[in-house]
Design a protein around this nucleic acid. Structure first.
Lengths: 238, 238
DNA sequence: CAGTGGTCTAGACCACTGA
DNA sequence: CAGTGGTCTAGACCACTGA
């Protein structure tokens, strides 16, 4: 509460006027010169406050025209990606992973996903289920480029899931995730112990380290056993 | 390519050394003084570059200890929330919305969701389907607080969906979204024209404007008709 | 062409904190 | 206590762009 830097106070003042609705989209913000006089400070200080708000998408700044409240409300949210083991533990259940299938091979010609992942190299193909108290709640198929992660070939995944292993050994720099739903096919249904056609949440995630492709994973979560949660807002104010 | 400001060049230099893996978590970045000398610039310029990277979570800065590459790779991604109408149009299909049910009432006692949304005020309760080329692909139930949005009571939603109307009239400042899967119940199945138990992607979203609750919507998308896409990485470099 | 923001300088004082 | 980052000043020159 005490000792808030001046640039944060300026930012916070303007931010709350926008969030409260007092300032609407398109409304003009005082110029840097006017704010300098209002707060009795140097231009750099005002500029820092406005730059942060501009970076956050709340303001749009243009020369000569001045600074106005941004029109397009953001159409994106931050998606939390919980660690499955932690998520399960939080519900007082025991997490486990059971490896079902393991294979090392070349990518299949004609499979664009496999070819773009492994190129001329080999693929490690893993199938397994995630368990809560010993019961399957998710099935995953994973492809890993052995050119990108050679040392993973000697892992047996008896006690740790491939996802956890990768997270701890190969930090990714880029990722894309597609979230959808599907009915369980015969394979998934038998692994999860449910009827064919049962609703599943599907997650397909590709990860990169720099320009290099690391892994592609397809997961099917039993409906009701898992949720993804996304949030936007509340800013950084305490 | 030309005319990149110096602080962006510094930021980009350090960022690419981190993303390429040349600098790993915990590795020390040169101090501001050293970077000043390296780039032959004032300290403010270096500081700006490092502040941006620190704000993005790539660096951790501590006095006396210096600046190091952050340890925790982010466990969050940015989730794009496309406008359904735009998403449908992009696939060369015609978007439509059909209102099925409309009701104004008090929140039901014992329903925590309704009570926290409307308090002592009234609720507008809407049910409807989103259409692509006239075929239903999503069903939604929506509750809107009339205390927060009184002017919506006179809308008939013949040509515009409640979601679009709200987006254009009541910009939200905070939102929370839960994403899961479920089998269609009898109600949903009949509205979407599918068998009971068919897999659906479920989205439950709450939005606020400042401290005021605006709306709660529950949507069921037919499996395969809709995907949410989340991304992380690639920074802002072109 | 005049007002606005974008960038940068060369200092300054300070708070913090690990060697 | 010395090195580091956090903040701030009082200027400067410039590019852009709408009146």
């Amino acid at each position: 509460m005490t000792a808030m830097p001046l640039h944060e106070r300026i930012r916070s003042d303007i931010e709350s006027r926008i969030l409260s609705g007092e300032l609407g989209p398109g409304d003009k913000i005082p110029s840097e010169l006017e704010l300098m006089e209002k707060y009795g400070c140097a231009r750099m200080t005002v500029s820092k406050a406005l730059s942060v708000l501009s970076g956050a998408g709340l303001l749009v700044r243009r020369k000569r025209a001045g600074t106005v409240v941004a029109h397009r409300r953001t159409e994106s949210m931050v998606l939390d990606i919980p660690d499955l083991a932690i998520e399960i533990a939080r519900r007082n259940r025991t997490y486990g992973y059971r490896l079902i299938e393991r294979q090392v091979r070349r990518p299949e010609k004609g499979d664009a996903d496999e070819l773009s992942l492994a190129g001329a190299g080999r693929l490690l193909c893993l199938g397994g289920v995630h368990l809560a108290d010993g019961c399957p709640f998710a099935y995953e198929e994973r492809l890993i480029s052995l050119a990108a992660v050679p040392q993973i070939e000697s892992e047996d995944f008896a006690s740790v899931s491939p996802g956890s292993w990768l997270l701890h050994h190969i930090p990714w720099t880029e990722a894309e995730q597609r979230i959808g739903a599907a009915g369980a096919d015969a394979d998934v249904a038998s692994h999860l112990g449910v009827a064919i056609g049962s609703a599943c949440l599907t997650v397909e995630r590709r990860t990169w380290r720099g320009a290099e492709r690391i892994t592609l994973v397809r997961q099917k979560f039993l409906a009701g056993q898992y949720e993804l949660i996304a949030r936007f807002g509340a800013s950084q104010a305490s």
